[in-house]
Simulated assay, not measured.
Amino acid sequence: MLMRTSEIFDLLRDGRGRTRSELSRESGLARSSVALHIETLIQVGYVTPVGDAASTGGRPASLFAFNPGARLVIGVDVGATHVIVELADLSGEGIAASRADIDVAEGPEAVLGWVEQAIRGLVGQQDRALEDVVAVGIGLPGPVEHATGMPISPPIMPGWHRFDVAGWLRQRLGCPVLVDNDVNIMALGEQRTAWPDTDDLVLVKIATGIGAGIISGGRLQRGARGTAGDLGHVRVPGSSAPCRCGNEGCLEAVAAGPAIAAKLRALGVEVSGTADVVALAAQGSVDAAQVLRAAGRDIGEVLATVVNLVNPSVIVVAGRLAGAAKELHAGISEVVYRRSLPLATEHLQIAASATKGDAGVRGAVVLAIEHALSPEVLDAELPSRSRSGQPVVMRYTS
C-alpha cells in the first residue's frame, strides 16, 4: 500500500508518542517504510524523538511524537474597532498576542500595515525567524468571497471592496494567508475551544448585524460563494422594518443591536447603542428585558428554520449582545423549541459563547493550522524541505 508521509504524520497529530512498530501496525506499512517517513518528518522538525517505550526485554524502542513548536502560525481577528494578532504553535497553543484599537474604516493598508508589524514584532520577541511562520489566518467583519479571500461590498469597511488581503500580506510575510468572514472564524474557534466533540454546531453572532457560522459533519459550511449563514437578511414574518440592504423586514433590522436600542429609545429609555443595551440588561431594566426577549423570539423564528434544515447539536450565542444572554436565550429558546421538529431539538443545547471574546482569533489560528498541516501542503513541502537541507530548529522541541 502506497502511503504518503503526511498520513504517517496525521497518526501522530494527537500528541501521543508511538514506536515505529506501533506506527507500522496502525498504518499497515512495513516497519522499514515507516522508518523512512519518520526520518523525513524528523529532518524538517515536525516529529521528534520523545524517549523510549517501556522495555519488554532487550533494547527499548524509541518513541516519536508530533513537535508543535517546529513551526508557527498566526491568527488575526479584525473587528469594527479593534485588531487582535496571536502567535501560536502547530497545536494551536497561543504563545503571544498583540491588540490595538483601530477602526476598520481607516482602510486596508492602515489596518494590514499594523498587522504586518505586529506579526514581525511577536515573532522577533520569541527569537524566531519570520520563515518559521507557515500560515496566517484572518477574519474580517464583512462578506468574504471564499474563492479569492476578498471582501465584497462590506458595509462597515470603506475602501476594502475587492482588496487583495491575502496577496498584500503574503507579499510582505512570504507565507500563505487564509481569509474568511468573522462569523465563520468564530464558529471554528468556539467549536475547537469549547465543543471539540461536537460535529454539528451553529454560532450566531448578534451585534450591529446578525450572522451565523455553520459547522456540519465537522466541516465549516461556507456555501458556493462564502455567504452561507447570512441570517441577518432573512425576512421576519410580519415585519416591514427597513434594512440597510434595501429590503424590508430583515432580521437585522428587527433584532440586531441598533434595532433594539431604537426600540428602547421609542419607550423613552436613553440608550446610544449596543453597549448601553447590555448594561441596562445587567442592571435589571424591565424595558430592556422585554425588548431583548422579543428580539430573541424574532431570532428564534429564523433559527427554528436553521434547526430543521441542518439539525445542529449546539447553538452558540455570541457577539456584543451575548452579554444580555439571559433575556435573548429566553426568547430564542421559546420559539426554537416550539417551532422545530421534536427529534431535532431532543438533545439541542443553546449556550452562550464560552471563549470570552477570543473565538475570532482562536478560529483564525485553526484556519491557518488546517491549511499548513493539510496533506496537500505537507506532501508538497516535506520532500523539498528535506532535500534542500534546511536546518531543523530542534531547540524549540517541547
Rank of each mutant, 00 (worst) to 15 (best):
I332E: 05
V302Q: 03
I332V: 10
G360T: 11
A359P: 06
E376S: 14
A380S: 15
P383Q: 10
A344P: 02
V306P: 01
L378K: 03
R297V: 06
K356N: 15
G296F: 05
E381Y: 12
L309C: 12
A322P: 00
V377W: 10
H329N: 14
T345C: 13
V291T: 11
S384N: 08
G323N: 01
Y337S: 04
A344G: 07
A330S: 15
S386I: 11
L303T: 05
E376P: 01
A352F: 11
A359H: 04
V335E: 03
L378I: 14
L378F: 10
L373F: 12
A318H: 07
A330W: 07
S333C: 12
G360P: 04
I350P: 04
V336T: 03
S374R: 06
A322D: 04
I350G: 05
V365E: 08
V306Q: 00
G319R: 12
A359G: 09
V316S: 01
G331Q: 06
Y337K: 07
I369R: 09
V365C: 05
T355H: 02
A359I: 04
K356G: 10
R297A: 03
A318T: 11
V366C: 08
G319V: 05
I315W: 04
V335G: 00
V366S: 11
V307L: 05
L303I: 03
L382E: 13
R293G: 05
S333I: 08
I332T: 10
A368K: 06
D379T: 11
V361A: 08
A364L: 07
E370K: 13
E334N: 06
P312H: 09
S313M: 09
S384I: 14
L341N: 11
P383K: 05
V310F: 10
L303H: 01
A294K: 14
I299D: 04
V291W: 03
S313P: 03
P383S: 10
V365R: 05
V310S: 11
T305V: 15
I332M: 13
P312N: 12
Q349V: 12
E370S: 07
D298Q: 13
L321S: 01
E376I: 08
V361N: 11
S333R: 14
I369L: 15
G296T: 03
N308M: 05
